[in-house]
Write a protein that binds this DNA or RNA. Structure first.
Lengths: 215, 215, 215, 215
DNA sequence: TGTTAATCGAGACGGTACGTCCCGTCTTGGA
DNA sequence: TCCAAGACGGGACGTACCGTCTCGATTAACA
C-alpha cells in the first residue's frame, strides 16, 4: 500500500529520535482522500475505459502533479483506490463455527455484489496477470483468508476439533463457490438480491459443506 | 461469437431457399484466422499494454480496415481472440465419476495456468463488469459447466444415483476451489507445476468432496 | 483530354480499314457522361474536400472499376470534369473590335463568377504547380486566348491596323484585370452582379485600354 | 492571421490594467516558428501530396498536440505557413513613378516565380472558393495592393497629377498581366529567368501602360 | 523579516494509439 | 471484356490520454 512519495511521520521507524518536518510546503493532507474518492467515483461512473488521470484530477479539484506526486501511474492509483474503498472485511464472531462461516460467506457475497467490491475482484485478477501488481492480489487474498483463519482458530479455542487440511478445503470451497456464483450472475444485477436470500443461500452452502470437517 | 459483420450462410434462417453469395468481393476467409492468431501472439508477447491494432494488423499482413471490418474495436478483438484460442474444454470420459471429476479439475487447472487460459478468466471477470460483453462471460462459464453436466449425466446413465443439488454444489466447489487456488499463485509461475502434481492435488480435492454426494 | 483507356474508333488513324469491335463487352457509352456529371455535382456540393471517388461512383450509379477504367486517378477525373463542363468559350462577333472585346471580357467575367468556371481557374492554378497536370492549365489558357486571337484577326480582316504586340498586351491586360477583380470579390458572392453591371464595367475597362492600340 | 488559440498580450484590449499571464505552463514561444518553418520545408520538399501533419511535427521536433493546439487542421496550417513565408512585399521607392511601377511589377513576378510565392497564389485562389478561408485571399490581395497605393500616393506628393481611376486601372492591369503571364509559364520553370529579363519585360509592360495616366 | 524549498492548480509538452476515412487495386458473379 | 459491388493493403487524419514539464502562487520552517 506504500506509495512512492516521500515517507511520512507515521510510517517512520525512528523510535526515539524526534521527527523533523521536511522543508518546504507540506502536502495537503486532504488531497490524498479527495483523489482516492474522485478516482473511485470516476471508475464507477465510466468504467475502466473512461478512467482518466485528467478527469480524476479535475474532479478532485487538484492538479495532475499533485496526483503523480503520490501515485506513480494510473494503474497504481486505480488499484489503491479500489483497495482503500473495499477495505474492511470485518471479523465475524457469532459464537459458533457454523454461524461464523455463514456470516463469512455472506460477507463475501455481499462484498462481491457491490460494484466496488467486484472491482476489487477485477483488480485482483488483473494484478495476478501483471507482474508488478501481483502483490495487490495477494494482499486482497490474505485479507479475506485471515478472517477465515481466525474463525477456525476461535473454534479450536472453544475446544472443537478442526483438522487443518479440512479447514483449508472448507475455506477454498466456500470462497470459491461464492465467487463462482457471483461471476455467474454478475454484480449489482440492477437490484441486488435480498439480504435474507444471501444469508439463506450461504447457510445452505455451509450446511452442505460442514460434514467435510468430520472426515 | 458472431461479429457485427454481415450474415454468413450457416447463420441464415432461410430453410429451403438456396444461399446466394452477396455481391462484391467476398471476404478473405483466411484473414479472420490470421488476425486472431496475430492478436494472440501480440497479446502473449507484449501483454495488454503492448497490444496495438496497428501491430496486430501488421503482423497479420493485413490493413487496419480489414480488422475493423470484422471487429468493432480493440477490446472486442482481444476478447474474441482469447476466446477462440481457449476454446476446447474437451469432454472427459474415464469410465468412473471420480476419474471424470479429477480429469475435469485437472483440465481447468492446466487451462488457468496457461497464459491464454488465464487471459480468458481475466476476460470473463472483466466482461461481467462491462455490460456489452457480459455475454462473453456467460459463454465461458457455460462452456466449462457443460463438460461437468455431461459427466454427471453419464454417471446417472451408468446407474449411479446423483442428486441434482449435490451435483451443482460439487461442481461449484471444485471449480471454485481450483480457480481460487490458481489465483493465489498466479498463472505460469515461471514454470508451471508438474503435470503429476496437478493431477494429485485435484485427486485429493475430488476425494475430499466426493462424500458430499452421499448426503 | 485523352484518357489512359484503350483507344476508341473516332481517335483511330486507320482511314480505309474497316474498324473491328474489340472482343468482350463494349463499354457503356453512357457511363462516361454520368461519371463526369456526378463528379461536378459532388465537387460543387462538397468542395474538394468532400470529393470522393466512392461518392462519385455511387452517385453515378457505377462501380469504382468503371471509373478507374477511364481515368487513372482522382485528380485527373476532377480536372477533366471541370474542363468538360467549362468547355465552350464561344466565339464572339459583334462586328466591331470594341464590341468584341467588351463581349470577351464580359464572357470571362461571367465565366469566373460561376462556380464551375471559377473551379476551372482553381484547377488551372493548381495544375500549373503540379507538374503532371500542367498541360491542363495550358489548355485552359489556349482556349481563352484563341477567342481573343480570332477577334483581332477578324479586326485585321476588316482592315483595321492592329499591332501584334499591342494585341497581346491588350489581351493580357483585359484578361488579367478581369481575373484579378473577380479574385478580389470571389465567385458567386451569394448573388452574382447584374448582367448589365458586368457589361458596363467591362465596357469601361475596354474603353480605357483601347487607346493602347494607337501607340 | 490570428489562430484559434487563447489571446496574447498584444491582442488584448485592456488599456490601463497590467497584463496577467494566464495560469498553466505558457506555450513554447519557439514552437510556433519551428512548426511554420517545418511546414514550409515539407511543402517545398514533397508538395501538397507529401505534406503530412505527422511529418511536419516530426521535423519540427514537436508532438502533434502542439501543432493542433495552434492550428485546427492541416489546411489552415499550410495556408498560414505559406502566408508567413510570403510576407514581405517590401515597399519600393526609386524616386520616379515609372521606376516604382517597374520595380513593383518585377517584385510581383519574382514573387510568383518563386515556389513559395506561387503557393501563396494557389492558396489565395483556393481560399476565395472556400468560405472559411476567404479572409486569407483578401489579406494577400491587400498586402500587394497597399504597396501600389503607396507608390501612387508618393507620386502625388511629388506633385504629379494621378487620377484615382487611372491608378486603379493601372494597378489591376499590371498585376493582372504579370499574374497571367506567370500562369502561362508556371513558376520555377526548372530555372527562373534572368533577373534582367524580368526587369526588362516589366519595364516594357509599364511603359506601354503608362500613357493611360494621361487620359 | 526575509530566504529557502517543496507543494499547489493549471495546462502545455513529446509521444503513441485510437478508430475513421479514403485511395487505388483486386476479386467475385453476372452481362 | 466490361460491369456493380465491395473487400483489400496502405496510410493520413484529428482526437484523446499518458506521464513529464514549466509556470506563478502558496505555505511553512529556518535564518
Amino acid at each position: 500500500m506504500s506509495r512512492a512519495g516521500r515517507t511520512r511521520p507515521a510510517e517512520e521507524a525512528a523510535p526515539t529520535t524526534a521527527w523533523r518536518r521536511p522543508p518546504g510546503r507540506p502536502r495537503d493532507p486532504m488531497a490524498e482522500q479527495r483523489i482516492l474518492d474522485a478516482a473511485i467515483e470516476e471508475y464507477l461512473a465510466a468504467g475502466i475505459a473512461g478512467f482518466t488521470m485528467d478527469r480524476v484530477a479535475r474532479r478532485a479539484g487538484v492538479g495532475k502533479s499533485t496526483v503523480y506526486l503520490r501515485w506513480p501511474d494510473k494503474d497504481t492509483l486505480l488499484v489503491e483506490s479500489v483497495l482503500a474503498r473495499s477495505g474492511g472485511i470485518e471479523d465475524v464472531d457469532t459464537g459458533s463455527l457454523r454461524g461464523d462461516l455463514v456470516e463469512l460467506a455472506g460477507n463475501l457475497m455481499r462484498f462481491l455484489l457491490d460494484p466496488v467490491g467486484f472491482a476489487s475482484l477485477r483488480v485482483a485478477v488483473e494484478s495476478v496477470a501483471t507482474r508488478p501488481h501481483r502483490r495487490v492480489a495477494i494482499e486482497i487474498g490474505e485479507r479475506h483468508l485471515a478472517a477465515a483463519t481466525r474463525v477456525f482458530e476461535r473454534a479450536r479455542a472453544r475446544g472443537e476439533h478442526v483438522d487443518e487440511h479440512a479447514a483449508t478445503l472448507l475455506t477454498d470451497c466456500i470462497y470459491g463457490a461464492v465467487t463462482i456464483r457471483v461471476l455467474r450472475r454478475g454484480p449489482d444485477q440492477h437490484r441486488a438480491p435480498d439480504d435474507a436470500d444471501i444469508t439463506n443461500s450461504c447457510a445452505a452452502l455451509v450446511d452442505s459443506l460442514l460434514p467435510l470437517l468430520d472426515r
